[in-house]
Amino acid sequence: MGLLVEVVNEMVLYSLDFDVKARDFDSAGEVSSNLRSVLKQLSLNPDVVRRSCIACYEAEMNIIIHSYGGHMEIEIFGDKIRITAEDTGPGIEDIELAMKEGYSTAPEEIREMGFGAGMGLPNMKENSDFMDIKSSKNGTTVVMEILFK
C-alpha cells in the first residue's frame, strides 16, 4: 500500500507550460493566475494555493524584470507542486546577496511601478518547502516545491 502511494505521488497528474517574455508587464501575473484557477479547481488547501501562487508570481516577475525571456513549467503531483522557472541571461551574480530581503538590482523605472523591492527571492523561499537556484551568465533556473501537507 505504501509503495502504491509512493508511485502515485511520483506521477505528474497535471502540468502547465508557459513562455514568459522579458519586460512584458502587461501580461505579468498570467502564469500565476492560470495556476491559481487550476489549483482552485482541484480543491487544494487554500494555504497551498496561496503559497504556490506567491512563489509562482515572484518567479514570473523575476523573468520579466531581470532576464532576456524564459519559460515556466508547473507540475502537479499527488503530494506536491513543482514550479520550474528557466530563463536566458544575464544570470544572478551573487545568489547569497540576491536572497537578502531588500537587495535588488531592478532599474529605477521598474521600482517606481512598485516592483524590485528586493523581496522576490526571499518570498519564493518563504513560500516553498524546497528551492534550488542555479545561475550562470547564460541564465538562471529556479526549482521550487510546495508540499500538500
Binding site: 502587461d26 501575473g29 500565476s32 501562487c53 506567491i54 512598485g114
Partner: peptide
C-alpha cells in the same frame, strides 16, 4: 490602499486574495 494604478495591481490582489 495603493497609489499604483497599473494593471499589475489586479494580479497581486487576485493572488493575495
Amino acid at each position: 490602499i495603493t497609489i499604483q494604478t497599473h494593471v499589475n495591481i489586479v494580479a497581486v490582489a487576485l493572488l493575495a486574495e
